[in-house]
């Protein structure tokens, strides 16, 4: 690998915002051009690009992972696959998939792409929640004790917190289930 090149994988692993911004500046335009040529919008491209970064992040978290190809080669391959998956889902009703829209990748990467797609679905649903529910759900998923959540959220009682937690989670589950991608992902896991 070019020794003058920043260690992009380490940037993804560390989550360093300045470094991630440089990855966007360096690579998003090329990925976006590809996706927009394949019928996507700029927003589609940004979503796909972000999901690919999540896949890379998961890869980078594996202790023994090393990039066997260049960073961009890998990133681009993952983006193509994610976009290919989306086209495939659309195609069930409307589109024919271009031959080159789907590329082979190893099963581990395929699994991570699936997880990133699931994560995207949950993340989008999570962001639809109100601020209060988002905070509560974050604390809940981080396994914070109910007593602590009650105090942090300024609620009157643990019982109220439990009630509120149920309401927020029910809303979150509903947003997930209402999303058409949910059935697609369920279909994929069989």
């Amino acid at each position: 690998m070019n020794s003058t090149q920043p260690d992009f994988l380490s940037i993804v692993r560390s989550g360093d915002a300045a470094g991630l911004r440089s990855i966007y500046q360096e690579f998003l335009p090329r990925v976006a051009r590809h996706i927009m040529n394949k019928g996507g919008s700029f927003d589609d491209a940004k979503d796909v690009f972000q999901d690919a970064i999540i896949v890379l992040y998961e890869k980078a978290r594996q202790p023994d992972f090393e990039l066997t190809s260049g960073f961009y080669t890998f990133l681009f391959g993952v983006c193509r696959n994610i976009w290919g998956n989306r086209l495939q889902k659309k195609s069930r009703t409307e589109v024919t998939i271009p031959d080159d829209a789907k590329y082979k990748s190893d099963t581990d990467t395929e699994e991570l792409i699936f997880q990133a797609e699931e994560n995207r679905l949950f993340w989008d649903a999570f962001k639809k929640l109100g601020d209060d529910c988002q905070r509560l759900m974050r604390l809940f998923f981080e396994k914070t004790k109910m007593e602590e959540i009650t105090s942090l959220m300024g609620y009157g009682s643990v019982n109220y917190t439990k009630k509120r937690k149920f309401v927020c989670k029910e809303q979150l589950v509903r947003f997930v289930k209402e999303d058409e991608r949910f059935e697609e992902l369920a279909h994929k896991t069989g």
Binding site: T4, Q5, G19, R21, Q25, E26, V31, R33, G70, F71
Partner: peptide, 18 residues
């Protein structure tokens, strides 16, 4: 033109962003 990901972006990758 079709993207060809086979090559790493050249020296431009040494962006000063970091």
């Amino acid at each position: 033109e079709e993207e060809t990901p086979a090559e790493e972006p050249a020296a431009s990758a040494a962006t000063p962003a970091t």
